[in-house]
Amino acid sequence: MRTPWPGIALLVFYLMVVLKWLPKYMEDRPAYNLRKLIALYNAVQIVCCAYVLYQSLRLGWLSHYSLVCQPLDYGPQADEYAWKVCYAYFLIKLADLFDTVFFVLRKKQNQVSFLHVYHHFGMVAVAWGMVKWLPGGHTSFLVSVNSFVHIIMYMYYLLTVWDDSYKQSLWWKKHVTQIQILQFSILLVHFCVLVVADECRFPRQPAYILIPQNLFMVILFSDFYYRTYIKAGKPIKDK
């Protein structure tokens, strides 16, 4: 965490792998069957996200943290929160990058969309910055919300691995996307509160980055939702 260069190098490597090198490698090869590996990966993600959610609630948001204005904690549990919540969350965001790798290896390059890659890239950067400068306090609320959402999301993914019928269920897909939109909307409001809160001893600078970031995510996910579940579902009228 001392310098950003290893993280930047990793993210550049990630982009090159999923957008150039791995797709080229897979051009003349059949898709890999990663069913068992992905099932294990999803199960591990559920357990890890549940652990981080539990620790974030136990050490902060269900004990002494305030939703309106939570300064950076320097109490007896501050180091524990930094390690068990913020740093563990950062490691999970690094592991999330395998989502894209699995898409490419299964020859599902259409799912490697701008939204998908931008979201994964951005969350690693945000998590790194949180651990580096503000491992706790107001902005760490995103850890609790995002971990809860990812528990639901990876449970859905695990179900689709074991039963292909879930992949065809628009009910499941639609609500997972709705939960994603709700997540970023909640976080958008949460960071806006930090800007307008009087005499809040938590730095406002992160909010100036995270407000447009979450607004952008709301717009991207809403656009995806409209194109996938509303526009695509409209009947085509005869000329």
Rank of each mutant, 00 (worst) to 15 (best):
Y14P: 08
V17M: 15
P30Y: 09
A31R: 13
A31L: 10
L34E: 10
L37A: 14
Y41M: 07
V44H: 05
I46Y: 10
V47P: 00
C48W: 13
C48P: 00
C48A: 15
L59P: 08
G60W: 02
C69R: 09
P76Y: 11
D79T: 09
Y81E: 11
W83P: 00
L94K: 07
F102M: 14
F102G: 13
L105P: 06
R106E: 15
N110E: 15
V112C: 14
F114L: 13
G122V: 05
A125S: 09
V126Q: 01
M130K: 02
M130S: 10
V131P: 04
L134V: 01
L134Q: 02
P135G: 05
L142P: 00
H150S: 07
M155G: 09
Y157S: 10
L159S: 06
S165A: 12
Q168S: 11
K173R: 15
V176E: 07
T177Y: 04
I179E: 07
I181T: 03
L182S: 14
F184N: 03
C192M: 12
C192Q: 06
V195W: 11
R204S: 09
I211D: 07
N214C: 10
I219R: 00
I219K: 01
F221V: 08
S222M: 03
D223A: 10
Y226G: 05
Y229T: 10
Y229D: 07
I230C: 11
